[in-house]
Write a protein that binds this DNA or RNA. Structure first.
Length: 361
DNA sequence: GAATCGTGGAC
DNA sequence: TGTCCAAGATT
């Protein structure tokens, strides 16, 4: 597309956006903090999934100050089930930084905002443009898909370096006076019209600008390398009860997968028998009889698949009260309290000794 | 550049 | 059922 066509493209796109934009919670006002939170939640996450989390998050933490003053445990609890939990911890840390170093005002320069934890190139541009109407590119998957079709660009969008190509294009193409709406419109178009499969080209407001439609190659763009399948990992987990019927949960390490979240004790399966699980229970300072296998559970991460054999066990020696130690990161809790955090806790609840999927309750 | 880091919905 | 994917960032 020639540069002189940019204005016409902007007009067609923005006119469509004005008429068709969704009424989303973070679009009710232009609060940089709320824009920020929404952008973090929306990373690799669908709008429909984010909406209820965003609402609850704003009820709990209406302002930067509220979030900055909150306990990390509380923030993680609010993030429960949303995934990619480092987003919550990074957001919390960054909000504290803004509260302390910027007087609670979200900074409006690329350097300052980009240095915040969890704020990468896309999110920095999104906040600057959406909240402050600054003409910075906000190139996400939607934008790369849309523009790869508009300009028939065959670069592999799964490569990190490709994003810069599209950022250069957006810097040329972006509306200077409506940067906020322009970036949102590009993403909205990708979400509503220029979809990954079966794009609605006949309904597209910029179809006359689209090189891919002209050439009939909209179905082969964007080019995106396939990612390799996740590795399977056999796990064993245990629902370990004391004589009061309480259940043992433990806290995961501060880094890595599901960092700092709570779970039923579980290990990577090393043997076909229960020796490894028994040995692990021993390391907890307990002796227990493993009574029976409850069920098999499959839990799919983006790069790992856990195939978990879940067992039940009863403490027969050792005092569960001695295990109540926050610093050790494990303690016994009442069944009613176990309805949070990822597997085996987040998606299941214990009823009559059986694990039941949340949606089955 | 390639891995790591979640989850649930759509086809 | 399997596959892809959804407003990515960090290491």
């Amino acid at each position: 597309m020639k540069t002189k066509d940019n204005h016409k493209f902007q007009q067609d796109l923005l006119a469509w956006y004005d008429e068709n934009k969704r009424d989303l919670p973070w679009r009710k006002e232009r609060d940089p903090y709320k824009i920020w939170v929404s952008e973090i939640m929306l990373q690799q996450t669908r709008v429909d999934t984010v909406i209820p989390y965003f609402q609850r998050f704003m009820d709990l933490f209406p302002t930067i100050h509220d979030l900055a003053e909150a306990e990390e445990e509380t923030v993680l609890k609010a993030w429960e089930g949303l995934g990619y939990y480092s987003r919550a911890r990074n957001l919390h840390q960054a909000v504290k930084e803004v509260s302390q170093s910027y007087g609670g005002q979200v900074p409006k320069t690329e350097k300052e905002i980009g240095d915040l934890k969890g704020v990468g190139p896309y999110t920095a541009g999104a906040i600057l443009s959406i909240a402050y109407n600054i003409p910075a590119p906000a190139v996400d998957g939607n934008v790369m898909r849309v523009l790869s079709r508009i300009y028939t660009i065959y670069d592999d969008i799964s490569k990190a370096s490709t994003r810069k190509t599209f950022e250069s294009i957006v810097r040329e193409l972006i509306s200077q006076d409506r940067s906020s709406d322009f970036n949102q419109a590009l993403m909205e178009l990708g979400a509503m019209v220029c979809s990954p499969t079966n794009p609605s080209c006949l309904l597209c407001p910029v179809q006359n600008h689209c090189s891919a439609k002209a050439e009939g190659v909209q179905d082969v763009l964007p080019v995106k390398a396939k990612k390799k399948p996740p590795k399977k990992l056999k796990m064993k987990a245990v629902i370990l009860r004391d004589h009061d019927g309480r259940i043992l949960i433990e806290r995961r390490p501060d880094t890595g997968l599901l960092a700092k979240l709570w779970q039923f004790p579980n290990i990577e399966a090393e043997t076909e028998n229960l020796d490894d699980l028994t040995a692990y229970i021993t390391t907890l300072g307990l002796k227990a009889d493993i009574t029976n296998k409850v069920q098999e559970v499959k839990h799919v991460f983006s790069h790992i698949v856990w195939e978990i054999s879940v067992y039940e066990a009863i403490v027969k020696a050792g005092h569960s009260d001695e295990l109540y130690d926050e610093t050790l990161g494990r303690h016994f809790v009442q069944v009613e309290d176990v309805n949070w955090y990822p597997f085996p806790v987040s998606h299941q609840k214990i009823i009559d000794g059986a694990l039941v999927k949340k949606e089955d309750l």
